[in-house]
C-alpha cells in the first residue's frame, strides 16, 4: 500500500480551508456552474484542520478501484480534475458503498469550487461511513468549508458543531 501513500495528498491540503481557493478547471468556458467566490464577505470559520488531512484507502479496497484511484491521483497532480472526477465516478460504480470514494469526489468538487455538490457528496460519504469518526470529521470539514464559501453560515456552524461533537 506504500505506493499509494501520496494519493490525494494534494487534495487533502485544500481542505485546510485557506482563503486561497484554486479552481483549475480544464475547460473553464464549458464549466456548467462557475464558482462564485463570495468568501470575501463571509468570515472564515475556525476549522480544526490545519494539518494536511489524508485518508488512505483501506486494505479491503479492490485492485480495480485502487487502479482507478491511482489514475485519479495522477490526473489531480496534473491539474486535470475533469479526468480525476471521471476516474472517481468509475470507482464509485465498482464500490458504491465505499464512503472513501464519495469523500474523494467531494474533495475534487471543493477544489473545483462547486460547493453545493461538494457538501452533498460529503453528506453521502457520511451516510455510508458508519463508525468511522476520522472520515466523518473530514466530511464535516468539507461541508463546513463548502457552506462557508457559499455563504451558508448556519450550515457551516452546524457542521462545525458536528466536528466538535465528534472530537469529544
Amino acid at each position: 500500500m506504500q505506493r499509494y501513500g501520496f494519493i490525494f495528498l494534494t487534495l487533502g491540503m485544500v481542505v485546510g480551508c485557506t482563503t486561497h481557493m484554486p479552481v483549475p478547471i480544464t475547460n473553464p468556458g464549458l464549466n456548467d456552474k462557475p464558482a462564485t467566490d463570495i468568501a470575501i464577505a463571509v468570515p472564515e470559520l475556525p476549522l480544526h484542520s490545519d494539518q494536511p488531512n489524508v485518508i488512505l484507502p483501506g486494505p479491503q479496497t479492490s485492485p480495480a478501484v485502487m487502479k482507478l484511484l491511482e489514475q485519479a491521483h495522477s490526473a489531480t497532480l496534473q491539474g486535470d480534475l475533469a479526468s480525476a472526477e471521471s476516474f472517481l465516478e468509475r470507482s464509485i460504480r465498482i464500490e458504491p458503498k465505499n464512503p472513501l470514494m464519495w469523500h474523494y469526489l467531494a474533495k475534487i468538487r471543493l477544489q473545483q469550487g462547486r460547493f453545493n455538490e461538494a457538501a452533498g457528496l460529503a453528506q453521502k460519504s457520511n451516510a455510508l461511513a458508519r463508525g468511522d469518526k476520522t472520515l466523518q470529521m473530514d466530511n464535516w470539514r468539507i461541508i463546513a468549508h463548502a457552506c462557508n464559501r457559499s455563504g451558508d453560515l448556519a450550515g457551516a456552524q452546524e457542521a462545525q458543531r458536528n466536528i466538535d461533537a465528534l472530537q469529544r
Binding site: L30, D32, E85, L105, E117, L121, Q123, A127
Partner: peptide
C-alpha cells in the same frame, strides 16, 4: 475535446 460532463449530484 471534452465539452461537458453531467456530474454526479447528490443532495440529502
Amino acid at each position: 475535446e471534452r465539452l461537458r460532463r453531467y456530474p454526479i449530484e447528490v443532495q440529502k
